[in-house]
């Protein structure tokens, strides 16, 4: 192979590529973790991809209205915001919440498949308005409950309810 200068050129080329990549990543690394333009762009891209994925998951529009989905529709609730609010209020300390990595508490029931339940905490019907009100002040409806009043605002409660109703309506 002595006659082929191509091979060392390839070697040098790959080495140069590695160096360039290393330099770029190093520059990126200098960004403050909480003020990171590349990271923010990536996060935004991820959010858009989420939108596309959920649109794709919905499938083609059906001829008849989806009564189940309409029953669980929370007016003004945004599931994506609700997911973040769950982290914010510390729901995960007591509950397992699918989709929230840090939520794996075993104090209260898992919230997986919440959309399929008939009652909330055995005292309220499982309907959007009731769930929102429950989240805002559980002891009001169930005096002996261990779940505290977390000071949830109405908007946040609606968001969280919207997220919780994404958990297991299909099964």
């Amino acid at each position: 192979m002595q006659g082929k200068p191509v091979v060392p050129l390839t070697l040098a080329g790959v080495a140069a590529l590695v160096l360039v990549a290393i330099t770029l990543v190093s520059v990126w690394s200098l960004a403050h973790p909480q003020r990171d333009p590349v990271g923010n762009a990536l996060a935004a891209m991820g959010a858009r991809l989420d939108g596309v994925r959920s649109w794709y998951a919905q499938g083609p529009v059906e001829a008849s209205p989806d009564w189940q989905a309409m029953r669980l529709n929370v007016p003004g609730g945004d599931a994506a915001r609700g997911r973040l609010a769950m982290v914010e209020y510390g729901c995960g300390a007591c509950h397992v919440i699918p989709g929230v990595a840090s939520a794996r508490g075993t104090v209260g029931p898992s919230l997986d498949g919440l959309a399929r339940r008939a009652y909330i905490a055995g005292v309220l019907t499982n309907a959007p308005g009731d769930l929102t009100r429950w989240l805002m002040n559980p002891p009001l409806f169930s005096p002996e409950t261990a779940m505290p009043n977390l000071g949830v605002t109405e908007a946040d409660a609606a968001d969280m309810a919207a997220y919780l109703y994404t958990l297991g309506p299909d099964a």
């Binding site: 982290v87 914010e88 209020y89 510390g90 729901c91 995960g92 300390a93 007591c94 794996r104 508490g105 075993t106 104090v107 261990a146 779940m147 505290p148 009043n149 977390l150 000071g151």
Partner: peptide, 19 residues
């Protein structure tokens, strides 16, 4: 580790060994 609020406090007290 966790944001200070009533929710996390209650969960913490009730199940430290899990958290």
């Amino acid at each position: 580790m966790w944001r200070m609020n009533v929710g996390n406090l209650a969960g913490w007290i009730a199940d430290v060994q899990d958290m």
